[in-house]
Design a protein around this nucleic acid. Sequence first.
DNA 1: CTTATAATGATCGTCTGC
DNA 2: GCAGACGATCATTATAAG
Length: 587
Amino acid sequence: MGGNTSGVEDDNIDWDSEDEREIENFSLSSCSRLTVPGGEAAMGSAEVGSSAGCSNSKLLDHFVGMGFEVEMVAKAIQEHGEDNSDIILETLLTYSVLEESPQEQQIESDQFSSDYDDSFLDDFPDIDSCDNEESTNPNIRTLVNMGYTIQEASIAIERCGLDSSLAELTDFICAAQMAKAADAQLGEYDLEEKPRPKHLNGDCSKHKKRKGADYEMWKRKKQAGLDRRILTEDDETIRLPHPMVGFGVPSETFQTIRRTLPDTARGPPYFYYENVALAPKGVWTTISRFLYDVEPEFVDSKFFCAAARKRGYVHNLPINNRYPLLPLPPQTIHDALPMTRRWWPSWDTRTQLNCLQTCIASAKLTERIRKALEESDGVPPLHIQKYVMDECRKWNLVWVGRNKVAPLEPDEVEMLLGFPRNHTRGGGISRTDRYKSLGNSFQVDTVAYHLSVLKDMYPGGINLLSLFSGIGGAEVALHRLGVPLKNVVSVEKSEVNRNIVRSWWEQTNQRGNLIDFDDVQQLDGDRLEKLMNSFGGFDLVVGGSPCNNLAGSNRHHRDGLEGKESSLFYDYFRILDLVKCIITKYE
DNA sequence: CTTATAATGATCGTCTGC
DNA sequence: GCAGACGATCATTATAAG
């Protein structure tokens, strides 16, 4: 199945190559792009075949895409040769500063060049110095090759001790980065007032300028040419697309979108992160910034099934030639729940359900609704209709009899979310917990659509690291796609959920190994390294971290990404980054 | 029968985007 | 101005365990 996208169609894709260039440029600013002394930045070899072409023109495009004049770029390339892009960039920056009027220069040095300054130039001299001063400690070079700055590496070694393991060092740096990002969230320029970890105090002005510099650049680049941009002009809030179809849904196969990932984001390993789309302001900005500046894909599962589910996905998977699971699930309430058709009143115009949540309406409520409806013969008065409809929408009630509405059964929720029937049934789980586990889960068809590109890439199967596995939405999706699961490391706090996944694993006669843990915070570098050594690393890292501090339904602790549970996102990042580091180390 | 644990029901604002 | 959101708390009631 899968889109009719042949190679031929691929050719007519891209009139706005702006897109690609912009994001591509952006990737340059990422620290992990630091080239190894040998030369080329590590490129994901498995990444979608991006436009092959003369490297020279590519380089030219690359810098032009950044916003430099063509002539200027050509001149710089001529002067320094195409091999040294760092020097070319430096030259271009010098040119552009020289060209500006003093006034503009002032402004620009804050908003523009300083970003480049910090993200590009500051780091590179340090790398050089690495050779001279620090080469006594092999870890420092490894860290730098992993993409950390020399400052981060040397501070980490200083703090953790010369004989500390690589895992300890990367953990330390991750923690420092988190602290930094937390500060960044508090405001761009209030650093002087906020205490910050001592090790980041080295050069305040530098950090000040540097904060979010990469992201700023991305935003600017996107503003310049991206029609589909998701950042607004005046703030850093990510805007949700309308309709919420992400980079495409099965019903919309006519358009092919291309994207180029930042170098640091490229797989392997592939990663796939999920959370609620309608999070408080700034949350997705932060998530995206941590996850290697990959633009989130916002998708409403109403394009995949009969219920809405607005979610953001940050992933580095190819986005062309996706295909949906077959058979396509029913798209309307009537098709999904045919028994309701008979009782559905004409004045209930819903064709799809709202988001399936973790709680259901009480029996008392449906009883009140029944009574309200029985007061009138035939079509109820408008105010009753409105009352009933409001409650039906709020609680996702469906018609199961004359004047009788009811919440969905757990079996029905399972079906709507794309799980096999009885997936969460039995094994000692209560009805309430089924709703809870299901409400917190992926919509399988949606996720499978995104993961479908892996099928051809890994005919022999994959090793999966599944964080916050829940009831195994990712595992089910991959299985239904026919992607063999070789080794699955699943981390899930809830025991009933782990039992559900284990039980599914056995019932589906999986031939691989399922290893489960209960706490992401205990999954450290050492454990990961041992696991990865035993079967050769992970191909995919999936996770949807807790949303309860982000979700609108939460009246009590909607504390944002720093909330008690939702801050576990940082563990997703930490672990993903460790996996990337360990893979790099053994390559 | 007593106690522990689980399920149920009612109530609780806010922010975002249109 | 309105609809909508992978929710939490607390009191009450039901069921299980001892």
